[in-house]
């Protein structure tokens, strides 16, 4: 049962991520990105990580993608942006990256299947275990993540603000 659900969710993940990266309209791409993230949340749940699945939905699909949507709407990209994307996305530009990505994919597949293991994913890890581990041995990393988020806040404020010299010119 879990296996079938996993296959379905994996197919949705790969399909919608390919669609997200080949759209011309940024808002359509973001909707496909949300689909990708929700399918990944299903996979996390199937792997026995319900807390990570909830965080994936709340933080990724709920906050980060909305941040993207705010900026896309603020920039007010119209019909002209779709035509410009069409100009930028010519098929001959795809060949090089496609070959490079295929080579990387092959190498990583060989690395995975070089030592074949038929291990299956194990037991469920409850949020309680995650919490005790997070605020036990990993407490320094939690504080560093807090510093990082503070730096992100200050940096975003600094970059997003309109300067006097901009207004004059």
């Amino acid at each position: 049962m879990e296996y079938i659900l996993f296959i379905i969710a994996a197919a949705i993940t790969i399909g919608s991520s390919i669609l997200a990266l080949t759209r011309l309209n940024a808002s359509h791409a973001l909707i496909y990105l949300v689909v990708t993230l929700l399918a990944l949340a299903v996979i996390f749940f199937l792997l026995g990580a319900p807390f990570a699945a909830a965080l994936q939905i709340v933080v990724y699909a709920g906050a980060i993608v909305v941040l993207f949507l705010f900026v896309v709407m603020m920039l007010n990209l119209g019909k002209s942006s779709v035509e410009r994307e069409q100009r930028w996305l010519q098929p001959r530009m795809w060949y090089g990256p496609a070959v490079l990505s295929a080579i990387l994919f092959a190498i990583l597949c060989v690395a995975i299947y070089d030592s074949p293991s038929s291990d299956t994913t194990g037991t469920m890890v409850s949020p309680k275990e995650v919490g005790t581990e997070l605020f036990g041995p990993y407490i320094i990393a939690v504080e560093l993540a807090g510093f990082l988020l503070l730096a992100g806040l200050v940096g975003a404020y600094h970059l997003g603000r309109r300067y006097l010299s901009d207004r004059r010119s």
């Binding site: 879990e2 990256p97 994919f105 995975i112 291990d119 994913t121």
Partner: peptide
Amino acid sequence: MTIPVDLVMLLAIALFVIGL
């Protein structure tokens, strides 16, 4: 929960390559 870990890693690789 009988999902082979190889398959999950394969999915992770595919997603990474698509992103790249």
